[in-house]
Amino acid sequence: MNAKSPAPQISLARPVAIANWLFVVATMVVIIVMVGGITRLTESGLSITQWNPVTGVLPPLSEQAWQAEYNLYRQTPEFIYEAGPAGMTLSDFKFIFFWEWFHRLIGRLIGIAFALPLAWFWIRGSIPKGYKLRLLALLALGGLQGTFGWLMVRSGLSGTMTDVSHFWLSIHLLTALFTLGGLVWTALDLRALARNAAARPSRLTGVAILAAMVLFLQLLLGAWVAGLNAGHASSDWPLMQGRFIPEYDTTKGLFWAVTHDPFLLHFLHRWWAWVAVAALVWLARCVRKTDRRASKAVHSAFGTQIILGIATVMTGVELWLAVAHQLVGALLVIATAWAMHSAGRRDGTAL
């Protein structure tokens, strides 16, 4: 009598469902990056002086509560040296409070939107082999993002600084963008796995690493420009105040100038952009034959970003143009992660 063959095991892994969930979270990250830009541009970031993870979900619900929050804000250097002398009213305070509160609310929603489905997929055994640690790392990055956000706010609540530290602002923003890239990369790996059970994760290629490094530096410069309000250093283009290279302060050394002088940082950000364009064109050309959509996405994103950057400068940092510039920056990160992933696909095919 022939022995019965073992019944085939049915995999509980759901790579498509997890990939779709990660794309939803990535969309939320893009939204919070955009709202973060509004928060920065409206000088709203220091309006909430405390971090209350639970009770802070609700805004003030009475005039007495509003007055209490306003009184706390009135003790900050930003109010003492800038907002107060400018004649800020309680109504003005409510406007800036809203954007910081909304920014924090979206951050909380992202945490819930990531942690709860992750637990659900984990309990049901739906996470494919080899992806649990990666998903936990993305969760940890989200937690770090919240911590960095509070450290950024705290940096502007004492001393004589009327803004948050541009270093902490860059850490806060770049962590969000790095997490965004990780979400997209992981989702693309899972989609490849859904198409082919033997698919291996995409690898980093030399051109992808180079493009990522060049783009990282451009994003870092952009964050410093935002943190130091250096976008206002010039409203003409391609020259700055009638000169190609503007005057900048070197009395404290070149390193200080590169990291603190708004004129030099504005200059570096606007011209390093073309180095980033060259690196991204190279990356896009590398994947043009295997993934034409990724190549087009990179070209479209950096083209739009350049136009928005110039328009932002020439309009004296018009609010919605500057916000669009930051939004498209996040979309450029997505497009770059997509192209980098395609460049490292082991099967050489597009998703």
Rank of each mutant, 00 (worst) to 15 (best):
I10H: 12
A13K: 02
T27C: 13
V30D: 08
I32W: 05
M34H: 00
I38M: 12
R40C: 05
S47T: 06
V54K: 08
T55W: 06
T55N: 14
G56Y: 08
G56R: 06
V57H: 03
V57Y: 11
L58T: 06
W66P: 07
A68M: 12
N71T: 15
L72T: 13
L72N: 13
Y73F: 15
Y73V: 13
Y73T: 14
R74Y: 12
Y81V: 09
A83W: 02
G84V: 07
P85Q: 10
A86V: 10
A86N: 14
A86K: 15
L90N: 07
D92C: 13
F98C: 10
E100F: 04
A113V: 10
W122C: 11
I123N: 02
I123Q: 07
R124N: 15
R124I: 05
P128V: 04
K129F: 09
G130H: 03
G130L: 11
Y131V: 07
L136A: 07
L136P: 00
L136Y: 00
L139Q: 01
A140R: 01
L141K: 00
G142S: 05
G146R: 00
T147Y: 13
T147H: 04
G156V: 01
T162R: 09
H166D: 06
W168I: 02
F178S: 10
F178W: 11
S202M: 08
A208D: 01
A208M: 01
V214Q: 02
L215E: 02
F216I: 04
L220D: 04
L221P: 01
L228H: 10
L228C: 02
N229M: 12
A233L: 06
S235E: 09
W237H: 03
M240A: 07
R243N: 01
Y248S: 02
T250N: 03
T251S: 14
G253E: 03
W256E: 07
A257S: 11
T259I: 00
P262Q: 03
L264I: 09
F267S: 05
W272M: 14
W272E: 15
W274D: 01
W274E: 01
A276S: 15
V277P: 02
A278T: 10
W282V: 11
A284K: 07
C286V: 14
V298C: 12
S300A: 15
A301Q: 04
T304E: 01
I310D: 08
V313M: 07
M314A: 09
M314C: 15
T315Q: 11
G316F: 14
L319M: 14
W320V: 08
H325L: 08
Q326V: 13
V328N: 07
V333Y: 10
V333I: 15
V333K: 03
T336N: 04
W338N: 05
A343K: 08
T349I: 12
T349E: 13
L351I: 15
